[in-house]
């Protein structure tokens, strides 16, 4: 456990010393939030749009932006740097459990996403967005966002370990776009066209987004929240297990 913490601290330090990589993970999602709301808010006025539950369209869009903020997978890009620079071998030649190398980076990713997601919500509050489910809801929202960051970074780390290439890892990150856009990101699922609704139903990110949205727009809706957390838990176990397996077989 100490080794995971030591490696997490190192990864946090690394992120803080690379502001040029850290700041876009805050500003790009905020940019998308502003643009999406700017384009569609007048179509969905809060007074006459039932799915907004009395809030403005920005509140509906906030989960998409949080998911985007959690999907940069920068932990994997730092891992590729370690592999290419030789530091990864230095770690592997030390008596460090392979799982600690994976969890150290994922721990830092969770902490970083917690900070970024909290900042995003705090920035959003003065613009009329409220977390309807209160402080517990806020905590659940941030935890779910951070958990998704761990899942997505786990996937990216898997690609990094398999390919050992920054270009391939970067390209793999683009999978987030279909994952994010084949969801009810602009309107709830029942309002999507049939093909989009089918795609969204099969997309696991849909359930995470719906859980986040319910936290923002409604009081705590436990079945919906549990479904979101369940999806993250299953994907997390799969991604982390595959990453650990991959690092153990790394030759």
């Amino acid at each position: 456990m100490t080794k995971v913490l030591v490696l997490t601290q190192r990864s946090v330090r690394e992120a803080l010393r690379t502001p040029e990589a850290l700041l876009p993970t805050l500003f790009i999602p905020l940019f998308f939030l502003v643009v999406n709301v700017g384009q569609a808010a007048r179509i969905f006025p809060s007074g006459s749009t039932p799915f907004l539950a009395g809030q403005n369209y920005a509140a509906f869009q906030l989960p998409s932006s949080l998911l985007l903020a959690a999907s940069f997978g920068s932990a994997a890009l730092y891992l590729v740097e370690d592999i290419e620079g030789g530091y990864f071998d230095k770690l592997r030649a030390a008596p460090v459990p392979r799982t600690a190398i994976i969890f150290g980076r994922l721990g830092a990713e969770a902490l970083k996403t917690t900070a970024i997601a909290s900042t995003m919500v705090l920035i959003a509050l003065p613009f009329g967005i409220t977390i309807a489910s209160g402080f517990l809801g806020f905590a659940l929202l941030i935890l779910l966002t951070a958990s998704w960051a761990v899942v997505f970074s786990g996937f990216m780390q898997l690609i990094a370990l398999k390919t050992r290439s920054a270009a391939a890892t970067n390209s793999a990150g683009l999978i987030f776009f279909p994952l994010l856009f084949l969801t009810p990101s602009f309107v709830p699922r029942p309002l999507l066209t049939k093909p989009m609704e089918i795609a969204a139903t099969y997309n696991p990110v849909t359930y995470i987004m719906e859980a986040m949205r319910s936290i923002v727009l409604q009081d705590l809706d436990w079945p919906v929240i549990a479904r979101g957390y369940g999806v993250v838990a299953i994907l997390g176990v799969v991604m982390v297990s595959l990453s650990v397996r991959s690092i153990r077989r790394y030759d």
């Binding site: 190192r10 330090r13 690394e14 370690d82 620079g85 030789g86 530091y87 990864f88 071998d89 230095k90």
Partner: peptide
């Protein structure tokens, strides 16, 4: 090629 983490 010294395997170091140059950010530290």
């Amino acid at each position: 090629e010294a395997g170091l983490d140059v950010r530290q």
